[in-house]
Simulated assay, not measured.
Amino acid sequence: MSETAVRPGVRWGGIIGGALLALAAGAGILLLAVPDVFAVAGWIRPLLFSLRPEWFGAVVPLTLGVLVIALGVVWVVRRGTHAADREAEPTPGD
């Protein structure tokens, strides 16, 4: 029997999905708890309705850039953890 322990991988999709669900649930609870929603979040409506169509030409590439950066960070972190796991494995000659 092998003496090396295998660690389970981190499931980033589950972590990010759970964080988004927790954020949505927190926003829902906040909306239910606040007696006057428009007093708290009244700045959102003017902001949304003041958007102009020309802005989408900048918002879409900006959003894609942020997504690419986030995926790059996840890739670097995963590559680092996999490299650390490979270094921890004993070689057959040991």
Rank of each mutant, 00 (worst) to 15 (best):
P46S: 05
G72V: 13
L62S: 13
A33P: 10
A33S: 15
V68Y: 03
L48V: 15
L51F: 04
V76Q: 06
V59I: 14
L71D: 13
A39D: 14
R86I: 01
L51G: 11
A41N: 10
R79H: 08
L32P: 09
A41G: 13
A83I: 04
V73D: 12
W43V: 10
G72L: 08
F38I: 14
G72H: 03
F49C: 13
F56I: 13
G65F: 11
I44G: 04
P35M: 08
A70Y: 02
V59Q: 08
G65L: 12
T63W: 10
L64P: 06
R78L: 14
T63K: 06
V68W: 00
G42P: 03
L64Y: 00
A83M: 08
A58G: 14
G72K: 04
A33L: 09
L67K: 06
G42I: 10
P61S: 12
W75E: 13
P53V: 05
G80A: 07
W55R: 12
F56A: 12
V73Q: 07
W75M: 14
E54Y: 02
V60Q: 11
I44Q: 05
V37W: 03
T81Y: 01
R45T: 14
V74S: 01
V60M: 11
R78Y: 09
E87G: 00
H82V: 01
A33E: 08
P35L: 08
G57F: 06
A88P: 07
L67N: 06
V66Q: 12
R86A: 00
D85W: 01
L62W: 02
A88V: 06
P90K: 02
V66M: 12
R86L: 00
R78D: 15
F56G: 07
V73L: 12
E89L: 05
V34C: 11
W43P: 08
A58I: 11
V68E: 12
V74I: 12
D85Q: 00
S50R: 01
S50V: 03
L64N: 07
D85P: 00
E87Q: 04
A84H: 00
E89P: 02
S50M: 06
V60I: 15
A39C: 11
V59G: 05
H82L: 11
L32M: 13
L31K: 05
H82N: 05
V66D: 12
P90R: 01
E89Q: 09
V60C: 11
V60L: 09
P46Y: 05
F56S: 09
E89C: 02
A83Q: 04
F56Y: 06
E54D: 15
L67W: 02
L71S: 06
A70L: 10
E87C: 04
W43R: 07
E54I: 13
A41F: 05
E87A: 03
R86D: 00
P61G: 05
R86W: 00
V77C: 12
V37H: 02
P35E: 07
V40Y: 06
A58E: 11
R78A: 13
G42F: 02
F49V: 15
T63H: 12
T81W: 03
V76G: 05
G57L: 11
A88F: 03
V76D: 08
S50K: 09
A39W: 10
A70N: 08
L31F: 04
L71I: 08
L71A: 10
L62Q: 10
E89F: 02
